[in-house]
């Protein structure tokens, strides 16, 4: 079990896709966004540089935990590796557990890289605020790891790739990664998973208190994604 987790982490760190989507893309986007919004003072109640720090850290964790996981699971179902693993003495939950554990390890660097970048751009928080924000973002990433597992088992392996890209892109746009929507559409968009994740980050960042609605919605998504992942995983094991 620990050997499998170690191997999974090793694989993620060796993977070029991981490097691009979770480290380089958020870094570049951060610099682009901060410059593009150069004339605006604040967004979502915080400074531009602080807003995009959270937005890009969540982009990194969601990329690592969702797309990497979902793609891997789809590919490994197709290649038969997932099947081969079921013929080892590894416990039944071992495969998914190792995937989520390696996700947890691989999202940390993406959060830290963005923190360092934002700090160098002048974002200042107290030590406890940095810690709280980091933890919030890290733990929030697990919810998306569950969504990644669910997507990886959502359909036949061949048709999963476009499903992942659509869900991922729509979530990012609605979630405020590239800026926020106004009006009634904005009122709807702020209840999407990524928007809530970003909201959670900003709350941790500013030390504001969390309202009950946001908290309930976050927990609701966590329960929904985890149940969905468990259901689809079981369905796959029954079928093959």
């Amino acid at each position: 079990m620990t050997t499998l987790i170690k191997l999974e982490i090793l694989r993620v760190l060796r993977n070029r896709r991981y490097l691009v989507f979770t480290l380089i893309l958020p870094t570049v986007l951060y610099l682009v966004m901060v410059n593009a919004y150069g004339k605006v003072d604040s967004l979502g109640g915080v400074s531009i540089k602080a807003y995009f720090m959270v937005a890009m850290a969540t982009l990194g964790t969601v990329s690592a935990s969702m797309t990497t996981n979902a793609n891997r699971i789809a590919l490994e179902r197709k290649s038969g590796w997932a099947r081969q693993l079921r013929l080892t003495a590894l416990p039944g939950y071992g495969y998914v557990a190792a995937k989520i554990a390696s996700t947890a390890a691989s999202t940390l660097p993406s959060i830290l890289v963005i923190f360092v970048l934002a700090y160098s751009e002048g974002v200042r928080l107290s030590a406890s605020e940095w810690l709280l924000l980091g933890l919030t973002l890290w733990i929030g990433g697990f919810v998306f790891a569950a969504l990644g597992v669910a997507l990886g088992y959502s359909a036949a392996p061949d048709s999963i790739q476009p499903i992942i890209m659509i869900v991922y892109t729509v979530m990012l746009i609605l979630g405020g990664t590239y800026g926020q929507f106004g009006g009634s559409f904005g009122a709807f968009a702020k209840w999407t998973p990524m928007a809530l994740y970003n909201q959670l980050g900003r709350v941790a960042q500013t030390g504001a208190s969390l309202d009950g609605g946001t908290m309930a919605a976050v927990l609701g998504y966590a329960v929904a994604f985890i149940s969905l992942a468990a259901f689809l995983y079981q369905r796959d094991r029954r079928e093959s």
């Binding site: 079990m1 050997t3 499998l4 191997l7 090793l10 694989r11 060796r14 993977n15 590919l75 490994e76 197709k78 290649s79 038969g80 590796w81 997932a82 099947r83 081969q84 013929l87 080892t88 003495a89 590894l90």
Partner: peptide, 27 residues
């Protein structure tokens, strides 16, 4: 039981020794 499946894919992005080592470790 030790099994070699026809369709048994292998874990990518790892070395042969790492993969076989995992199989030894999990047995």
């Amino acid at each position: 039981v030790g099994v070699m499946l026809q369709s048994g894919g292998l874990m990518p992005d790892v070395k042969v020794r790492e993969l076989v080592g995992f199989a030894c470790g999990v047995h």
